[in-house]
Nucleic acid binder design. Structure first.
Lengths: 145, 145
DNA sequence: CTCTCTGCAAAGCATTTGCACATTG
DNA sequence: CAATGTGCAAATGCTTTGCAGAGAG
């Protein structure tokens, strides 16, 4: 496996080995995609045909424990994973499911205020904004991507 | 607690029948509790010993479709359900798991601003604030509730 | 060469569903 | 009484795990 940059570096620095499967899994999540384990498997298999779903799950667990990957949503059936970039929130289209990463700096301050009123410490927050994206707003009621 | 009034009313007005099981399920979620299906089953069985888990799930689906109940979180294993009160957000202790309902009015305006920048419409949002609650902050590192 | 991974297949939960009987309105 | 709801148990979907052989360092 060639470079893949700082990404593989995270694995190398950990106590885990850098294998083709792990690099490919990481690569599948680059550029901010939000994918389920099965979707990741598809992408990984495009490069490494024999990979099993079990390995994907095991790899995702490891990557999460190192902090390179995080679960974005558990809703409904399968969990969705994403690369752990800088802190961000999510804008999700309720129609087509598209997910956009957004930064909402005010969110944390707002959360801290509320949390402190209740005596909470070490505060963090997750904001999920939902709505119909531009494309889905145009379309009246058809079926698209 | 005896407010089973407006609550059952929702069921009566719907096309569904008001059964003991449904009333009990609704009652289990009163006063803002956040429970899993199994936890609801426990509480319901305290009053109706023979109820099955399947019925709890079926009932929760119906109550969700009527808008009386909603899923609060899908994290990890089992989903957590709560009564659908007025719009609110959640403050969750990462240590003991306690969940407190809070109102954060600014959250929606903030979300709408971000959403509109991306051309989204019909915007809504969900804010989850996490941290260690007062009780869990006091305790150094033991095990409690 | 040793120790860690991986593929395979079986196991584990949470949730859903088919069916015959019990209940509601 | 007719239609809907319920208990039971089997089925399903996602995720986890045990094991023996393959691969990384």
């Amino acid at each position: 496996m060639q470079d893949t940059k700082g990404v593989d570096a995270g694995l190398l620095q950990s106590r885990y080995r850098l294998t083709k499967q792990r690099a490919a899994t990481l690569r599948a999540l680059e550029d901010g995609r939000h994918l389920s384990a099965e979707e990741i498997l598809e992408r990984v298999r495009a490069q490494l045909p024999g990979v099993s779903l079990g390995t994907i799950y095991r790899t995702l667990d490891i990557l999460r424990s190192i902090g390179l990957v995080q679960i974005f949503s558990h809703a409904g059936g399968a969990a969705k994973y994403e690369a752990a970039l800088e802190k961000h929130h999510h804008l999700v289209c309720t129609r087509c499911g598209e997910v956009i990463n957004v930064s909402v700096n005010e969110a944390l301050a707002l959360s801290q205020t509320v949390a402190q009123e209740h005596g909470f410490h070490d505060v963090d927050c997750a904001l999920v904004v939902t709505g119909r994206c531009a494309r889905c707003t145009d379309v009246p009621a058809g079926a698209n991507t």
